[in-house]
Write a protein that binds this DNA or RNA. Structure first.
Lengths: 109, 109
DNA sequence: CTTATTAATCGTAATATTGCAATAAATAAA
DNA sequence: TTTATTTATTGCAATATTACGATTAATAAG
């Protein structure tokens, strides 16, 4: 089928999975790290930095935009991408919350 | 193509993406939460709790085992699954590290 | 207006993922 | 040994993802 049965899960579970899914590709991790590293807006240097073709990078940027991690503003012929700080913080909270659910002991340890 | 070009990225980028990818499905989030909630070993209650078919759950468990988040020990006819605490902590560190890379200011804020 | 430059979109091929029915494997119980 | 019980594996269909060439859209420069 290839179709996730989202209706079986809670809103929260679907949400964290959706974010994790977007982070689940090294190109998108690399893009985010690149944007963060520059501490300023990025235009088209991503294609040069990462080895992938321009349409591929554009597609990954679209994915990142779709979940709201980054936002892009047009600047002449190029586009300025940067982290959406609010969204980033909310993601950080969600992951922290999830990862802290686990106690340090269980039956197998 | 459908084939990720891992050789374009650093070990670290591939690693965090691989973990995020596994977390990128609500069923696997639900499975982890269920195991954690019980604070004890889980056998086959997952199938009842989550609505998916047994082979589907088994497949998701396999994915989780593959990256080492959970481990399973055989107990009679059933299998006891639990979190690999060490791996969990390392994942927590990796995500924290990644999510803390972002400063709170940039050109767009 | 014409010509770069830059990024998005379209179309498509290759591969991966999701889900499940059917079946197998492995142990426990009778 | 036979029969449950429980989980894993196989095989397959439907859908999603990844990547890129070709093209389009939009602005800038000449």
């Amino acid at each position: 089928m290839g179709l996730t049965k989202s209706e079986f899960f809670t809103e929260e579970q679907n949400e964290i999975a959706a974010i994790a899914k977007v982070l689940g590709h090294p190109a998108r991790i690399a893009i985010l790290e690149f944007i963060i590293k520059l501490e300023t807006c990025v235009c088209g240097d991503l294609v040069k930095d990462i080895g992938l073709a321009q349409p591929t990078i554009s597609q990954h940027l679209k994915e990142l935009k779709k979940v709201g991690i980054i936002k892009g503003t047009i600047e002449g012929t190029s586009v300025c991408y940067c982290i959406d700080e609010e969204k980033w913080d909310s993601i950080k909270n969600k992951f922290n919350n999830f990862l802290n659910k686990n106690a340090t002991e269980n039956c197998c340890s």
